[in-house]
Every structure is written in structure tokens, then in C-alpha cells.
Write a protein that binds this DNA or RNA. Structure first.
Length: 210
DNA sequence: CACCAGGCCGTGC
DNA sequence: GCACGGCATGGT
């Protein structure tokens, strides 16, 4: 790949032309909490990640901790990833994991998520339909994959398909909503709910809720 | 050594 | 519909 093409790919991956000045300005004027979150952590971008990678990673994330998710990600990359694909990182393509069985994955330490991974690999072509569906239909489709519920599904839509309406509700965001936005729903943050989620998540985890 | 982790599934009501 | 326990495994 030419350096120019790689530069363009990286610009897209990090969403360098995402219009964040306007998004940050909008969120900042919503309320004091978001205002200080943006002020402290301004610069957060929503990545444009590979949908298949995101699908597997967020299946791995359920009831798990970051350190171990990293380790499992690295292990899948080592065992199934290949440098022949034209990418700057080694996470496997769906085609490279087609042969993986539940037993293989258990031996690799994927635990109770192993059958979920197998189902996700098997159904990976569903991802191709997502760009043509509205948000709710896309979420319902993703949730037909075992191990994909509302939270994981919205993560896939946000990081894999850049759907800004997505607002993944994990344990931290439930606390955030209860504590700071008791009378609000994610629609309050439209049209930048996904970005707001990232700011609030990071804000809550680094400086705590009060 | 208990307890927990950026949920989801199956069961029982 | 909704509350509940179980879940593989490594970190703290």
C-alpha cells in the first residue's frame, strides 16, 4: 500500500474529518457536566473500526475486565491473524477464523464466550446488511447473533458503523444516567449521543460520580 | 483467597 | 414482561 493510501486510511480510522468542533460545541452548551467533560477531555473521536473486529471484541468484553480483554484480543490476533491482509494490525478477518471451533477457542482461553464467537463468525455476513438498515432494524439484526445484546449491539453500531445515535448502556453509563441525568434519555444528547456517551463514560471513570 | 469485570442467556414466575 | 443466578478466566 502506498504511504498516501495508508495516510488516508488512518485519517479515516481516527475520523480526522468528523466535524468535532461543532459536535463539541453542541454538547458543551447542553449542560455543565458535559461542558466540563468536553473541556477536560476534548479531542475524543469515535473511531471507524472494522465491524467484524468490533463484533468479536465486544462479545469478549461482557462481564470481563480490560486487561483480560486485551490479552484475549492479542491471542486471537497471534493465532488467527495474518500479515498477508493489507492492514496495519493483525486482528483476523472473518475468512481467517472460519475454521475455528468452540473447543479451539476454549483452549485459547475465550471461556464461556467461545460459542458466541463461533456464532458471530458464522453469521458475519449479516454485517453487510447493516449500512442499509435504520438504527432499530440494524440493532435487532445484530441481536440475532448469540452473545449480542443491546449494549454490545450498540457498541458495534457506534464503533463499527459510526452510528452516532448509539448510546451503549453499560454498568457505568447506568450510574451516570441515574446520578447526573435522572430525567433524561439518550435522545437528549442527539444528534451526538455516541460522542456524549464517550465523554461521560471517561469523565465518570476518571474523576468519579458525585 | 474472596471478589470482581464496559452483559447476556436461560429459567421461573 | 421482568427478576434472578450462572457463567470461564485472570486481575486486584
Amino acid at each position: 500500500m502506498s504511504t498516501l493510501a495508508k495516510d488516508e486510511e488512518l485519517r479515516h480510522y481516527f475520523d480526522m474529518d468528523g466535524g468535532y468542533a461543532q459536535a463539541n460545541a453542541h454538547l458543551s452548551q447542553l449542560d455543565p457536566t458535559l461542558s466540563s467533560a468536553v473541556q477536560r477531555f476534548g479531542g475524543i473521536h469515535i473511531l471507524n473500526q472494522d465491524p467484524f473486529e468490533v463484533l468479536l471484541c465486544f462479545i469478549l468484553s461482557q462481564n470481563n475486565n480490560i486487561a483480560r480483554i486485551r490479552q484475549m484480543y492479542a491471542r486471537l490476533s497471534e493465532v488467527y491473524g495474518s500479515s498477508v491482509n493489507e492492514r496495519w494490525y493483525a486482528f483476523p478477518l472473518a475468512s481467517e477464523m472460519e475454521q475455528a471451533t468452540e473447543e479451539d477457542l476454549r483452549r485459547l482461553g475465550m471461556g464461556f464466550r467461545s460459542p458466541y464467537l463461533v456464532d458471530a463468525i458464522q453469521k458475519h455476513t449479516l454485517l453487510e446488511q447493516v449500512p442499509f438498515l435504520d438504527f432499530e432494524a440494524a440493532l435487532q439484526l445484530l441481536m440475532t447473533i448469540r452473545g449480542v445484546g443491546p449494549k454490545v449491539g450498540q457498541c458495534i453500531l457506534l464503533y463499527g458503523f459510526h452510528r452516532m445515535e448509539a448510546f451503549p448502556m453499560d454498568t457505568w453509563m447506568k450510574k451516570v444516567m441515574r446520578c447526573w441525568y435522572p430525567d433524561r434519555t439518550p435522545a437528549y444528547f442527539a444528534p451526538y449521543a455516541g460522542l456524549a456517551q464517550q465523554y461521560l463514560f471517561h469523565y465518570a471513570r476518571t474523576q468519579g460520580l458525585q
